[in-house]
Simulated assay, not measured.
Amino acid sequence: MSVGIDGGDHNLFFIWPSLAVHHIDRHSPLYGLSARDLVDPSTEFEVVVMLEGTIESTGQVTQARSSYLPSEILWGHRFQPITTYNEELIGYEVDYSLFDSTLVVDTPLCSAMELDEIRSNVCASPSNSLLT
């Protein structure tokens, strides 16, 4: 799976919280996955995440690993922002108590593939001449 860093390149410097992002498009292995698939016990896959880096002060390589099963993936959720600007201190603050907190976002329950098909059918429909 292609994963990038939201708002930056692939070289991280961990002085600021960063969000790893996988965009679900035609090239994604999750393209055909729907909300129903995540709760279906016959859906079997695992997303394994590995983060590897170098400790700047020692040059030592370190690695963190985690994995996620379908039942652990929250459909239609986004991580809550943990940084805020404090005008009194004239700087940003990080609230680590929100580290694992998510917000529900309006997300279709169908797969990205089904959504693309619906959009292409709506746009191709002769009754939608205003869209063309």
Score class of each variant (00 low, 15 high):
V3R: 09
D37A: 02
S34T: 05
E44R: 10
L19C: 10
I24M: 05
L30V: 05
S42A: 10
W16D: 07
S28H: 04
A20P: 04
F13R: 12
V39H: 05
L38S: 02
E44V: 10
R36T: 08
F14C: 11
R26Q: 13
D37P: 00
D9L: 11
V3S: 11
D37Q: 03
E46A: 06
L30S: 02
P17W: 01
I24S: 02
R26W: 09
F45P: 00
F14D: 08
P41T: 02
G8R: 13
H23L: 14
S34I: 03
G4K: 08
H22M: 13
G4Y: 07
F13L: 13
S28K: 02
D25Q: 12
L30C: 07
G8W: 10
L33V: 02
P17D: 08
G7I: 06
I15P: 03
I24F: 04
I24A: 03
G7N: 12
I15L: 11
Y31N: 06
P29W: 03
H27M: 14
E46F: 01
P17I: 02
L19S: 10
E44Q: 10
F14S: 09
G32S: 09
D37H: 04
S28L: 03
I15G: 15
D9S: 15
D25V: 08
F45A: 00
Y31E: 06
L12N: 07
P29M: 04
H27Y: 15
N11H: 14
L33K: 00
I24Y: 02
V21W: 05
E46N: 06
W16M: 05
A20C: 10
F45V: 02
I15T: 13
H22D: 09
N11I: 15
S18I: 06
I24K: 03
S42Q: 09
E46S: 07
I5H: 10
Y31W: 14
V39D: 06
I15V: 12
D6V: 12
E46I: 05
P29A: 08
R26A: 15
V21D: 07
H27A: 14
A35H: 01
L33E: 00
S18R: 11
H23R: 15
N11W: 13
H23M: 15
H27R: 14
V21F: 05
S18Y: 12
P29N: 07
A20E: 10
F13E: 10
I15A: 11
N11M: 12
H23V: 15
R36Q: 09
P29I: 07
V39L: 05
R26F: 12
D25L: 08
L38Y: 01
G8S: 14
A20G: 13
L30I: 06
N11L: 14
P41G: 03
I5F: 11
S34K: 01
P29F: 06
